[in-house]
Design a protein around this nucleic acid. Sequence first.
DNA 1: CACAAACTGGATGTCAACATCCTATTTAGA
DNA 2: TCTAAATAGGATGTTGACATCCAGTTTGTG
Lengths: 155, 155
Amino acid sequence: MLSQTVEYALRAMVLLAGQGERPCSVETIATQTKVPAPYLSKVLQSLAKVGLVRSQRGVAGGYLLCREPQNISILDVVNSVDPIKRIGTCPLELASHGVTLCPLHRRLDNAMAAVEQAFEATTLAEVLAEPTTSVPLCEFPHTPAVNEGNAQRPF
Amino acid sequence: MLSQTVEYALRAMVLLAGQGERPCSVETIATQTKVPAPYLSKVLQSLAKVGLVRSQRGVAGGYLLCREPQNISILDVVNSVDPIKRIGTCPLELASHGVTLCPLHRRLDNAMAAVEQAFEATTLAEVLAEPTTSVPLCEFPHTPAVNEGNAQRPF
DNA sequence: CACAAACTGGATGTCAACATCCTATTTAGA
DNA sequence: TCTAAATAGGATGTTGACATCCAGTTTGTG
């Protein structure tokens, strides 16, 4: 239902949201999020094209967010790589019904709308700030040199 | 987000739900629902495998529903051809977190759950019985010989 | 019985999503 | 200025979803 690319993009964006202004290399993001590095590189390039992240070339370069995590919704990320397709008109080409959807497609579109709304309502900052339970969830193998002080990450 | 195959399967099922006990040929369904006939044939075969429809070979044969429309939900159809994938465990293979999802994936799964629930709550009968507005929605080109008395169909 | 309507199942083709690799370019720092 | 760390971008490979076609089988009907 959600593409693999969306999953990869969200993992990368959440990771970057926890990194502040420090650029994070593709290799680092790939390791932390367990995404294939060469493919992640392409995903990040497309995220850069739409202005969600920017890249810094050269030594100590990498990717970082263009906006604050509280100003980036899950929907922003999803729509950047694999947009939620709302049903605007009946997929059958009958021109007679105008913009009103038939009962079947109205229900399908309602479901899409619910997903869209849920994704729009959540920011990366909220995901990061989520009160964690006592046991760290989806904890990375802790690598302090690269990720100092961040013992847990939401993945 | 929803596959083309799901769309095709739903169109066919809704059409069959309006046909009662009369078998409907692939060719007829394909024409009415504007689905490529050869592919629709495969989709119907898979719907038959899971017991949603059955086939009648030979002259005057075709496909018909195995159950009453009020006992078939949209989710039944969706899950038969392209199941809603719920997120049961964190997609990263960290074994440390057990069954609890991290904040990101809990939200993604919540969205999937909303879709699942919406689809489960609606039956084919409800889609057919939907009070139509004055203007018929998604009306087929009317072919009385094949589809007598059914001037409107929800597509 | 013969025929035509209709499904069955296998083989095949196309294309986009996912994935990898390599060369070129940029850039911080010794 | 030289080098190593990184991204940029194009070429290529793989796989599954979507789609088509055909030979074979079933079955109602004249």
